[in-house]
């Protein structure tokens, strides 16, 4: 049903630390790997070995350059996937009821057997979180690895989204953002977690932790230089003789 639930028991989501992300794209690959062989239709690639390859991904990492008015420039890697919005515009526009938000945990999912592939939900999403699979003709999106997080066949440490499990830098965190005492909620409170495009009114559940301003180290640049002075100003001994001999030549 495409009516949004009035409230959800939990607000499961991700907290992404832009200060820690190193831009390795491991989350992109592990996401594609898990989701192409589990929930729903595989994530197809078109012309995968040809001149113009493209494919469906549920998570992508952008990179941005920030040049503040003062202080050094900064490069920020920016992973982006579905934010599982509380006021998800992608859900209400769906004509078939394929797109829905779960009352129990707030995860936004697509029932692929009801999806007609009209693409309107992707039009309604400001974040580019939904991609229409070119082969299957159905809408694909992040499921928050709904088939991992409740899966009792997996060891307990694996019961979290593939992107979170694989991140080598520990830049991705998973938990209940509706519970103010959860680890993720406390992280958001401590680090000033923020919403993307708050003016769109989507109330995203996923939060982003801003990068800390880069320390200005320009005045410390020659910290080792005194120890590496290459030329003696006033050579003595053998070097002094060599200097004079070369001058005379």
């Amino acid at each position: 049903m495409t009516e949004l639930p009035a409230s959800t028991q939990k607000k499961l989501g991700l907290v992404i630390d832009l200060d820690t992300c190193v831009g390795c794209h491991a989350c992109v690959i592990s996401c594609k790997g898990w989701n192409t062989e589990n929930y729903g239709a595989p994530l197809s690639d078109m012309d995968a070995y040809g001149a113009d390859p493209s494919g469906t991904f549920l998570n992508r990492v952008h990179s941005y350059e920030i040049t503040p008015a003062e202080g050094p420039a900064q490069l920020v890697h920016f992973p982006k996937s579905c934010l599982h919005c509380e006021d998800a515009p992608c859900v209400t526009v769906c004509p078939t009821g394929a797109s829905y938000k779960r009352q129990e945990d707030g995860i936004v999912l697509v029932n692929e057997s009801a999806c007609i592939g009209c693409g309107l939900c992707a039009w309604a999403c400001p974040y580019g979180a939904r991609e229409l699979d070119a082969l299957e003709g159905v809408m694909k999106k992040c499921t928050l690895c709904v088939d991992r997080i409740y899966n009792e066949n997996l060891p307990e440490e694996d019961r979290q989204p593939a992107c979170v499990r694989t991140c080598p830098a520990g830049a991705r965190h998973f938990g209940d953002l509706g519970d103010p005492d959860s680890d993720v909620s406390r992280l958001v409170a401590e680090r000033g977690g923020m919403d993307l495009m708050p003016e769109q009114g989507t109330k995203p559940v996923n939060k982003y932790l801003p990068p800390r301003p880069k320390q200005d180290v320009s005045h410390d640049m020659d910290i080792l230089a005194p120890f590496l002075e290459p030329v003696a100003e006033d050579p003595k001994g053998f070097l002094g003789w060599l200097d004079k001999a070369l001058e005379k030549l």
Binding site: T2, T92, V93, P95, I116
Partner: peptide
């Protein structure tokens, strides 16, 4: 199936 969600979907 597009006839089912007239409550929310234009």
């Amino acid at each position: 199936k597009a006839f089912t969600q007239w409550k929310t979907s234009w």
